[in-house]
Amino acid sequence: MGYLDRYGSLHPSSLSGLVRAIETLVDARVAPARLTDVEPVSAQPRITAEEEAAILARADEVNARVARILEDYG
């Protein structure tokens, strides 16, 4: 009582905590996977040149606004 283990971590996100969690998962029973119908993957949405130009223009406006704010408070 009253001593610290030099080789044990005091922080909950340490590797030793991770190892204990993995050991728990390895020892746990695994339920069989349920087969489901796989939906086909749709094509990624595409943006038009006009939409891209509008997005980039808005990004430029936001960047300019942030730059002005930083100049005022910097």
Rank of each mutant, 00 (worst) to 15 (best):
R46F: 02
V38H: 01
P32L: 14
I47V: 07
L4I: 13
V62M: 14
R6N: 13
R65H: 15
L4V: 10
G2N: 04
S13A: 04
L18I: 01
S9K: 05
Y73T: 09
D5E: 14
A67N: 09
R29E: 07
R46E: 04
A54S: 09
P12A: 01
I47W: 07
I55M: 06
L18M: 06
A67M: 07
V26P: 04
A33L: 08
D60S: 14
A59C: 14
S13K: 04
T48N: 12
R65G: 13
R29N: 06
A43R: 03
I69V: 08
A21E: 00
L70I: 11
V66Y: 13
T48V: 01
E23C: 10
D60P: 05
V38P: 03
R46C: 06
D27W: 07
S9N: 06
A54C: 05
L70R: 15
S9G: 11
E39D: 01
Y73K: 15
E71M: 13
R58F: 13
D5P: 09
A28D: 06
T24V: 00
A53Y: 08
R29C: 02
N63A: 14
S9Y: 13
R29W: 04
P45Y: 00
S16E: 01
S16F: 02
H11Y: 03
V19W: 01
A33I: 14
D72W: 11
I22R: 10
G2H: 06
A57C: 09
R6I: 14
L4H: 09
L56E: 15
L10Q: 11
T48H: 05
L56F: 10
P12I: 03
L25E: 10
G8W: 12
L70T: 11
V38Q: 13
A67K: 12
R68D: 13
D72I: 12
R34M: 12
S9R: 06
E71V: 12
Y7W: 12
G2M: 06
L4S: 07
L4C: 09
S42Q: 07
V38D: 04
S14H: 00
R68K: 09
R34W: 10
N63H: 14
T36L: 09
E39C: 10
P12T: 02
D37K: 05
V62C: 12
V41H: 04
E23W: 04
E39Y: 02
A64T: 12
S14I: 08
I22N: 05
Y3G: 07
E39K: 05
P45G: 03
L18W: 00
G8N: 05
M1A: 13
E71R: 15
Q44C: 08
G17E: 02
P12N: 09
E51R: 11
S13E: 10
A31H: 11
A33V: 14
L4E: 10
P45T: 07
A49W: 05
E61I: 10
A54R: 02
G74S: 11
R29F: 04
T48F: 03
E51M: 03
L25H: 13
P12H: 03
I55P: 02
R68V: 08
A49E: 01
I69A: 14
H11P: 02
